[in-house]
């Protein structure tokens, strides 16, 4: 790791001042699990590291009429164990429980993970499936970015100079919907998924699909929302045949990178399989009577 100067600001104003002063020479650090490894491997060589641990008020989980506001510095373990999250957003609690190991979840934060822009991470598909947004704060105020639009390319996000992600707004799942996050882990329990899928499905009283969102991770340079598959299912009866036909369209939406978890072809095939299972399991999770 090359040397740098470490800054420990105690307010957002101080953070913005440091960002103004050092610009591209500075990196923001939340939990540090990604950035420290990137610095050790010299993939990132900032002259200034701005640690957020002493900036107050960034680690609260609050109930709002629409859902939950989760502070950017909430650790993954804090979210996984939060009673509020467990009660109001069980999909989010379940997803964070599937990240890496308890030790990493003690350190890594929701905000740090999102702005890192790693397409293999677990939270983005589930958060996008729920329609979550990031609050980007700068000296000029707040800008709300749907997470669906945050990810631009491999490790590249829509964070603008002078901005930091301060909280994540996660709406409640629609009434009468079922949801699931599937992580295909053929190697070890702490690995990144070979393919991951989040699905949220709601149905009309007559059993047709009212709405569906299918979002995949680890199968492209960003998380991918399978809109064609969603469109194919929305308004249709939730039959095996229709679900299979919709899941088959997922193959056209993904563009996986080949790595030691599998070839691009294999991951593409698994994306279809796991999308189908995710939709089936989300339907099975719809509360009885809805």
């Amino acid at each position: 790791m090359i040397d740098f100067e470490y800054h420990a600001p105690t307010s957002l104003d101080q953070v913005f001042g440091l960002l103004d002063q050092f610009g591209d020479d500075a990196r923001i650090m939340a939990g540090g699990t990604a950035l420290v490894i990137q610095m050790k491997q010299r993939l990132s060589q900032p002259s200034h590291v701005i640690g957020l641990r002493r900036v107050g008020d960034l680690d609260a989980i609050e109930s709002t009429p629409e859902g939950l506001r989760i502070g950017a510095l909430c650790t993954q373990r804090q979210i996984e164990k939060s009673r509020l999250v467990g009660e109001e957003l069980p999909l989010v609690a379940d997803t964070f429980r599937k990240v890496a190991t308890p030790r990493i979840r003690n350190m890594a934060t929701i905000g740090g993970g999102l702005v890192n822009g790693d397409p293999n991470q677990d939270p983005p598909p589930a958060l996008i499936a729920l329609g979550a947004s990031a609050v980007m704060t700068s000296k000029g105020g707040d800008r709300v970015v749907p997470l669906e639009d945050l990810f631009i390319d491999y490790y590249e996000t829509d964070v603008q100079p002078g901005e930091i992600l301060t909280s994540v707004l996660v709406p409640h799942a629609p009434a009468g919907s079922g949801s699931v996050y599937l992580k295909f882990l053929p190697r070890t329990a702490d690995d990144y998924g070979t393919v991951t899928v989040a699905a949220v499905v709601s149905k009309e009283q007559d059993g047709t699909c009212k709405d569906v969102r299918i979002v995949l991770g680890s199968v492209g340079v960003t998380p991918i929302r399978a809109k064609q598959a969603e469109d194919a299912l929305r308004g249709k009866p939730l039959t095996d045949e229709n679900i299979r036909a919709a899941a088959a369209l997922v193959k056209d939406a993904v563009d996986p990178l080949e790595d030691f978890r599998g070839s691009a072809e294999y991951k593409t095939d698994m994306a279809e399989v796991f999308a189908r299972r995710a939709v089936e399991q989300a339907i099975a999770a719809i509360p009885v009577g809805s």
Binding site: Y6, A8, G32, T33, K40, G51, R53, N106, M107
Partner: peptide, 13 residues
Amino acid sequence: EMYASCITLAAAV
């Protein structure tokens, strides 16, 4: 809290 000390900066804690 259990941490991985190999990816924690001493200055950060």
